[in-house]
Design a protein around this nucleic acid. Structure first.
Lengths: 143, 143
DNA sequence: GCAAAACCAGATAATTTAGTCTGAATTAAA
DNA sequence: TTTAATTCAGACTAAATTATCTGGTTTTGC
């Protein structure tokens, strides 16, 4: 096995993109998010709760309540969601799992991997989710 | 949590680089590999066994036995080890965990992520482990 | 031949991640 | 005011990963 992001993070990203791509209503319940994205309701529900705690989304309790983006889509970077859920350790720690990996005491593949890692970080930091609305709608229509 | 490679794969890569960087003896036991790399002996032992099964390294049983590279270092690519242990799914499956992610039915970040993924694959496929011998020796001396 | 050192195979245990369940609090609508 | 739909908190279960243990087999050196 090997993953870039945890399932939590994957589902979190999906859910945020989902919210960003919706305009028709104000609140979207965990139930309909889960059902539209075809992911486990109880699980995504927990993830959404943690994103509320992180201030990326907001929630409204009670009937007809649900979740909504707390910021404008063009103010939410992909990395914000990753950071909120998985943290930024992947972008800091050693690919090979060597302890103490740094430019002073680099692991064997340090310089090669470092470039890739920086590019990934750069991409996730520069792209805001408004950029993905259209593509999300297309993908959603085919789930 | 989020990882690029599993612990198995990290330790496997470390162990292979270790073997590649050694010239003084023919066989290296799981015990000394684990002790030098400061990783769990029983665990790395299991990983080495699976790499033997994959033909990347060989082993010799009995007293003074141990493991050795089955090929020349310049014939072993980083990706070979990753493939043997974790498989190549990370380079094929969707970052966001969307099912059916392809250029026909792409996930929202498909094109952005695809580039990075290809570069990572490209790097791991082009680099052979002989390239890392010196750096490995340096790192080992500081563990 | 025998003991020690090693790999090997399979079972087991511990930890982490993924996912589910229950019940309470909140809100809107009937 | 009652009911249904919701978030939320926390406990719980399941599955995967990581790690350890036990015993067997092979090989070398004494």
């Amino acid at each position: 096995m090997s993953v870039i992001f945890s399932k939590k993070c994957e589902y979190g990203l999906q859910a945020i993109l989902y919210l960003a791509s919706k305009k028709d209503k104000q609140y979207f319940s965990a139930k309909e998010i889960a059902s539209d994205l075809k992911i486990p309701k109880e699980f995504v529900s927990k993830i959404l709760q943690s994103l509320v705690a992180n201030g990326i989304i907001g929630s409204k309790k009670g009937k007809n309540g649900g979740f909504y983006l707390a910021k404008k889509p063009n103010k939410i970077k992909l990395i914000d969601i990753v950071e909120a859920i998985d943290g930024l350790d992947v972008f800091k720690s050693c690919v090979l799992g060597f302890p103490n990996c740094s430019s002073d005491v680099p692991c064997p593949v340090h310089s090669e991997w470092g470039k890739l890692r920086n590019m990934a970080y750069e991409m996730l930091s520069s792209q805001t989710i408004d950029r993905f609305v259209e593509k999300t709608l297309k993908k959603l229509s085919k789930l």
